[in-house]
Design a protein around this nucleic acid. Structure first.
Length: 688
RNA sequence: GGCGGGGUAGCUCAGUCGGUUAGAGCGUCGGAAUCAUAAUCCGUAGGUCGGGGGUUCGAAUCCCUCCCCCGCUACCA
């Protein structure tokens, strides 16, 4: 489907500057975006490709506190590292920006002020608990106290679990900060809200229309639907924090703009910064404003709500009141997640592999190809290193690399490295030329419909067909009998090499460049080259450079080595890191551990994890609720000797009082194992 | 427990929203070939489409139910 748009604006999700990029990120958003962009550039489209680091938000502050750094120091570590990893991976951003720069603060404040001036933002005054020690307002889950209705002493800020009544956190009697245990004070705070709900009907129409025009992905439509179904609500756009963009409205000087609001605007900032560096300050408007632009936002599935709902609503909000009209995303192709060796990437568990580490071991193109053919386009997919090895060896090296090599080596030996003339065309020649003539549009159509994985596979199919052509034509035989025939075969094979270099440029740009060099072509692969891949493009008599190995194979031991650095082995054993700070003996003595014998056990109805146990401790039988139902059968538990914390403050879980807690080892993956004792000592025996 | 998503060949995944003998790549096995990175090409085998019901002339596809996995969440004191 030919696009009527003159310009293409592409963004890839702004990575959060609170950690290193890993392979899951690349498969989710960045590689798809880069494939799409590189393809369109070769088609001759006018493309602007933007990205940048998302550097605000409370998580960065928390990381800083944990490591004794300022937020600025945190982002100054991850922003350059991620930018560099992107560069090595071959991301072809026109500009990579960051949200901590003054220009971005200005962009954000401009939107904010605009909304505020036009009374789009609603002010809501509320009383909230403020912890003077932690110097912050407490979210509901960070505060507990006595329920004013039933007197239960561990009610949360929003609801009492004992009597089930809904509470306002300031109603709590004797509230306590869950972080530090001190008593917070009531302070009045005012926040501004963005009326997302007002936009719901327009957003639904917007998604429907764009889907009709550009074919949105099913998973994305499903996520949108569930948000619409739940109903959109006002969202707070201000927060009582220090780290972020200061609110530009009087009375709110001590607050910052909520990170969800400023992050998506980072795309616009990136456009402005790009334009400024081009020395054409207004050039960004050609892409961001006006009807001639098609805007495509590549993201991972966790970001759907911000790009399909929040960001469009913000742009609608702006467009309603201004002459300058921002372009809304025409499509938001979100991928699902990539697993690593069968398990979810997890920073906290140390599972997975960072992009920069991977690129220390292998060329980016190997990774790009392997990821491209297993992109999680319609559901989560798995990345296995042994698959990676197989893809590179059996496909990239053996099919593509070997075809290029055999063709160039043959030319070198039999024709002195000069493109032989094409003589009489026979059936085999006609067949492959026919295949060649449709290959660019076949691959291109798949790319344009966001079926990147199929597109790359289709490109590899041309290499397969090329090998078949070479085999069937048997130039090594005709070289002895019919040099004209042999020359014609090699002439066509060389044309195929050239076309393959072009069709593979979006996936493996470095490999394509190497082929180009071997073909001794002066003008680099560039805008408009895509369609020329359908036809022969090498002149007879042209002299080639000597061939070199294009893709070298991956050895087993290279895979083993990276498996170790990936933390695979580490993660299979229980973590020993993350030990808490040293405590004194007095502290430890406060804990009264006792042997307890299970006398009764049953599942708590409607609960999936909780077991209600009656245990004997000393002379007493008490009830304990434990979250072990997924691994232990109630009947099996009866008679077991456990170790329990006997002097723990009681709590009520799903209406069941729990007086004490049993000890169990908790693995990060959710597996657990109860603690018991080796010999049969009487219940109530102290453990220390 | 609730909401959402999955369960298709040994592995990784498609399957155009009911229509002929369920597909691809890799792996397996056999063959051809020997120009090439022992690479290539051809062919073969392999699936009761998680289980069970139902609707239909016809179901991987629609409905019901059950089992298992993943995510979010409730409750892992």
């Amino acid at each position: 489907m030919a696009s009527p748009h003159k310009r293409l604006l592409v963004t890839a999700a702004l990575p959060y500057a609170n950690g290193y990029l890993h392979l899951g990120h690349m498969a989710g958003a960045y590689l798809p975006a880069d494939l799409y962009v590189r393809y369109h550039r070769l088609k001759g489209k006018d493309v602007l490709f933007l990205c940048g680091s998302d550097e605000h938000g409370v998580a960065i502050t928390v990381t800083g506190e944990q490591e004794g750094l300022t937020p600025q120091q945190v982002i100054d570590r991850y922003h350059p590292a991620n930018e560099e990893a992107f560069r090595k991976f071959g991301m072809s951003f026109d500009h990579y920006s960051r949200t901590s720069i003054p220009l971005h603060h200005e962009t954000t404040r401009e939107f904010f002020r605009n909304f505020s001036d036009r009374s789009l933002l609603k002010e809501k005054r509320e009383k909230q608990l403020f912890c003077e020690k932690d110097n912050m307002f407490l979210a509901d889950r960070y505060v507990e106290g006595t329920c004013p209705k039933c007197g239960y002493d561990q009610a949360r800020g929003d609801q009492c679990e004992n009597c089930g009544s809904w509470l306002n956190q300031v109603e709590l009697i004797k509230p306590k900060c869950k972080l530090c245990g001190t008593t917070p004070v009531v302070r009045e705070t005012t926040h501004l809200y963005f009326p997302l709900g007002q936009f719901q009907r327009r957003l639904e129409k917007y998604v429907k229309e764009r889907n009709k025009r550009d074919g949105w992905k099913e998973n994305v439509l499903r996520y949108c639907e569930s948000w619409f179904k739940a109903g959109l609500e006002d969202r707070a756009v201000t927060r009582d924090l220090k780290w972020g963009v200061p609110v530009p409205v009087s009375g709110f000087e001590n607050k910052v703009i909520y990170v969800w609001f400023d992050a998506v605007l980072g795309y616009i900032t990136a456009g402005k910064e790009w334009a400024a560096r081009q020395g054409k300050k207004e050039a960004w408007k050609d892409y961001w404003q006006g009807t001639e632009t098609k805007y495509v936002a590549f993201i991972g599935k966790d970001n759907v709500v911000f790009h399909c709902i929040v960001f469009p609503a913000m742009l609608m909000g702006w467009n309603d009141g201004e002459e300058e009209q921002y372009v809304l995303p025409e499509n938001v192709p979100a991928n699902e997640f990539l697993n690593f060796e069968g398990q979810k990437f997890s920073k906290s568990r140390g599972w997975g592999i960072d992009l920069r580490d991977f690129l220390d071991h292998f060329p980016a193109d190997y990774l790009r190809y392997a990821l491209a053919v297993t992109l999680p386009e319609s559901r989560d997919s798995d990345f296995y290193l042994k698959d990676f090895q197989a893809r590179v060896n059996n496909e990239l090296a053996d099919i593509l690399g070997n075809f290029v090599n055999r063709t160039l080596a043959f030319t070198q030996r039999s024709f002195g490295g000069v493109v032989p003339p094409r003589r009489k065309i026979e059936a085999l020649d006609r067949e492959i030329l026919e295949i060649l003539s449709t290959a660019p549009s076949n691959v291109g159509n798949l790319f344009e419909n966001y079926r990147l994985r199929d597109g790359v596979t289709e490109a590899m199919n041309l290499a397969r067909a090329a090998n078949k052509y070479f085999n069937d034509s048997e130039p090594w035989k005709t070289a002895k009998s019919d040099m004209d025939r042999c020359g014609t075969t090699i002439h066509i094979a060389l044309q195929l090499v050239r076309s393959l270099a072009i069709l593979f440029e979006p996936v493996t740009p470095q490999i394509s460049r190497t082929i180009w060099k071997m073909l001794n072509l002066k003008e680099p692969i560039g805008p408009g080259f895509w369609d020329t891949a359908a036809k022969p493009g090498l002149d007879e008599g042209h002299t080639l450079n000597p061939p070199e190995i294009l893709v070298s194979k991956i050895e087993d031991k290279q895979i083993d080595k990276i498996l170790q650095s990936a933390g695979v082995e580490r993660s299979l054993t229980p973590a020993t890191t993350g030990i808490k700070p040293t405590i004194s003996l007095e502290d430890f003595k406060k804990i009264d551990l006792r042997v307890a014998k299970v006398v009764e056990a049953e599942k708590i109805p409607k609960s999936s994890k909780l077991l209600r146990l009656k245990v004997e401790v000393g002379g007493e039988v008490r009830q304990i609720v434990a979250g072990i139902a997924q691994q232990y059968e109630p009947s099996w538990m009866v008679g077991k000797l456990l170790v329990v914390v006997a002097n723990l403050q009681p709590v009520t879980l799903m209406g069941n009082e729990s007086r004490g807690m049993l000890l169990a080892a908790n693995a990060d993956d959710g597996k657990l194992s109860i603690v018991t004792i080796l010999d049969d000592l009487p219940p109530g025996t102290a453990v220390r």
